[in-house]
Design a protein around this nucleic acid. Sequence first.
RNA 1: GGCCCCAUCGUCUAGUGGCCUAGGACACCAGGUUUUCAUCCUGGAAACGGGGGUUCGAUUCCCCCUGGGGUCACCA
Length: 477
Amino acid sequence: MVRTRFAPSPTGFLHVGGVRTALFAWLVAKQAKGQFILRIEDTDKTREVAGSEKHIMECLTWLGLSIDEGPDNSLEFGPYRQSQRLDIYKKWAKQLIDMGRAYVDTTTPEDLDKLRELAKAKKQPFLYRNLRPDSPISQPYLEGTPIRFKSEPKPYSWHDEVMGDLSTGPEVIDDFIILKSDGFPTYNFAHVIDDHLMKISHVIRSQEFLPSVPKFLNLYEALEIKRPKLATLPYVMGPDGKKKLSKRDGAKDLLDYQRQGFLPEALVNFLATLGWNDGTEQEIFSLPELIAKFQLNKVQRSGARFDEQRLLWMNGHYIRGLSKKQLSAKAADFWPATAKADQAYKDDVLGLVQDRLKFLAELPELTNFFFEEPKTSAVKSLLNEDQQLKNISQETKQQMLKETVKELSMSSFSLADIKERLNKLLSQLETKPAILFSLVRIAISGAPSSPELFGTLKVLGKQKSLERLNQAILGLV
RNA sequence: GGCCCCAUCGUCUAGUGGCCUAGGACACCAGGUUUUCAUCCUGGAAACGGGGGUUCGAUUCCCCCUGGGGUCACCA
């Protein structure tokens, strides 16, 4: 049975790096029709940020990563918050003590610091196991004192589902704290116990834990439990490509993408192909496709830089693929405050801008002029500075606009009729589309760029279009 | 510093000894689709870090170097 887990600590928002780890774990579980478990690793009360747990679930839900077991739907393997499992860790720690594989450590943190500095001065690696008492205090749990694992140094080689065959020497194995003086377990201990009790089959986590794996291996042996499969994911690197993506260096809250109008499908696709591909030239994958095709051993071993350009392109691609109805629903919350028009009008506007939307929060700047009059000053300066228009005299421009008004006032304002009449004007005025159409486009939009002209006129409507054209004529005096 | 991991266009990547005059995508540049911007289409520029091996033949296997990253907590 395949069971994977995502085990974040509730210390703030999730960014794309963390979410990608969750996605990969989820894909592995779903592919095998197994379970995906959310476990909250809240063993460091000092770092906890209120609301994190809720935020984590919101992120997963938004992306469509269903949680089979977790704090909200606790099943037989719960509780799924480590802070609620303290008794379990104590029990296992006591068992280790009884076996002679853990001991009470009375060294103070201050002394530890001194010992570390000493070792550093001597240019020797600091290994606690060299210092441990000959016959460690084996008395059971002592309130307010940490418990340390008694390691058995040895070389290890093991297989990692992503990284391949890995090995280390005995020098990396050391005694480490399993239970802190506040009674909470450390990550190193708690996750091993929980993964075992929750019957996790694949531990999928990011690279920072790689150097600790031999310690875990040593612990698995001491506990006499079978270790799960291990999969280590490379980092998602920041935009500079130098460091792993982190909040400190400006990584965004995943929900910021939601707020910006990115589609979950796009984010999932982007995240999945950031460090993974199926060996073909396919770029676009739906979630079901990912479930079918994802392979841990096809995950890249090196870090992948987070490239927002590519995300932008992909999101635009998904927006273009939306039906009118879907887009209309998704865009509902993104309209500018000025958009007080009825839904049919808004939908027409959407039809015109769908191709150029990269993310939904762009809607206001792209569609403003459909809802409020363009600024006369903007129209005026654009009419004067436009590449195509700057060498045309004011009189000619005025003349052309007047003819346009005249012609369009006779129009039924169907798309075909607008097109026909403007084309007729073109030959009548002996001018090029580049000139006449630019003129009209700027007059009705007051924007440096706008959607296709005939459609824009039609959506705007006869009355508004003519008003704006007349307004522009006045502005040219 | 010790230990560990990694290394193909600017970026994400294909490539598991000959199919590679190294393929695709994003971004970029040029041209086209009756204006602009976007879309779409066509074309272009753009990479195997260096040095040794192994081999008839290395992007692909091995070693060294270089470079990058991570880790050495009573944080996860």
